[in-house]
């Protein structure tokens, strides 16, 4: 019943943490008239411990990719900050910012567009090394081959001279993963790494990521809207709704004892045997997905919530409550 400042592991120094993070996209008319803002990330707080694997879950358009890009430093937060290894990302400049880019690997949603079509695999993997000043050709070659072996594109020779369009989707995504790992990052952000792939290769890629994460002791933040597979690939889950984290908990606790009405609706949809395709969140739960341009006041979920309490939920933002151990949920029901 106590509110806590952050959804996070407090026991050790976090590798990466978000504090009051907001990323809004200004909408302008005629290039200068400010007509509003898309609140893609709207007050997110969390902290990830080194070596931890977590999943961010939420329906399409809830701001997951924007959060990932903000963590990567590709969007400048409108408010709040990202801290990495104790330093605020906003303060990093030049050399330090470049060093940060080597510390964080990025696996994108769409492997088909994530590789430059006019470069071969060797060159694609060499690019980050060149950018980060690895001048020695032999050294680069060694690291490129090692990275390919690590993502099980073996033997490496067979792939070095291939162009992306000659590879299957799964192989392309492995190249993307190899590229994300080649600078030996401490954090890997994977944005729906399998959503565009054939169902047959999804599990392989997820297992590969999990394996590499364990081997290297990486911190893995992986974004998905598929709750059904999350249990095997993450230790903690953050459920996002309309730019906010509404619930977070260790994976088993969250899946077995969902606290937030939104999470409960999601899981009910998966459990429903009639909804054949309901493992995807796009169709659930019932009701309009929230507008990020004019989000509902206070609790963002209140227009769709079965437990809506008029005069409270639509007036006051619910703080994070801790209804169970290590379990946080932003809902007035736990007050």
């Amino acid at each position: 019943m106590t509110s806590s400042p952050a959804h996070g592991a407090d026991d050790q120094a976090p590798l990466i943490a978000a504090r009051d993070l907001h990323t809004w996209f200004e909408l302008r008319q005629w290039g200068f008239l400010r007509v509003g803002a898309v609140r893609a990330v709207d007050g997110v707080e969390f902290a990830l411990a080194p070596g931890e694997a977590v999943a961010f879950v939420g329906e399409s358009g809830c701001g997951k990719s924007t959060l990932a890009r903000t963590l990567l430093g590709l969007h400048r937060p409108t408010r709040g900050e990202v801290r990495f290894a104790g330093r605020s990302l906003g303060e990093l400049q030049g050399r330090a910012l470049k060093a940060y880019r080597a510390e964080v690997g990025y696996v994108q949603q769409d492997p088909y567009g994530a590789l430059p079509p006019f470069l071969d695999v060797r060159r694609i993997l060499a690019e980050p090394l060149i950018v980060h000043g690895v001048r020695d050709r032999a050294e680069r070659e060694r690291r490129i081959r090692a990275a390919l072996e690590e993502v099980r594109l073996s033997p490496a020779e067979a792939f070095l001279n291939q162009f992306p369009h000659m590879l299957s989707g799964g192989q392309q995504q492995r190249v993307v993963i190899a590229r994300a790992l080649i600078l030996a990052p401490r954090l890997l952000i994977a944005d729906e790494p399998v959503s565009m792939l054939d169902a047959s290769v999804r599990v392989e890629i997820l297992e590969l990521l999990r394996h590499i994460q364990r081997e290297r002791g990486l911190t893995l933040a992986f974004i998905t809207h598929d709750l059904s597979t999350v249990r095997h690939y993450a230790e903690r889950i953050f459920v996002m709704y309309a730019g906010r984290v509404v619930e977070s908990a260790p994976v088993d606790d969250l899946l077995d004892h969902p606290q937030h009405p939104y999470t409960q609706a999601l899981l009910a949809a998966i459990a429903d045997p009639d909804a054949a395709n309901a493992t995807r969140l796009r169709e659930v739960p019932a009701g309009e997905p929230p507008s990020l341009l004019h989000p509902p006041a206070a609790c963002r979920f209140h227009p769709r919530c079965p437990h809506f309490m008029a005069g409270l939920c639509d007036v006051e933002d619910p703080p994070d409550f801790s209804p169970r151990r290590d379990h946080r949920s932003a809902c007035w029901l736990h007050r």
Partner: peptide
């Protein structure tokens, strides 16, 4: 975007 992320 990937290139930006690795610091190009």
């Amino acid at each position: 975007e990937a290139a930006r992320a690795y610091g190009a």
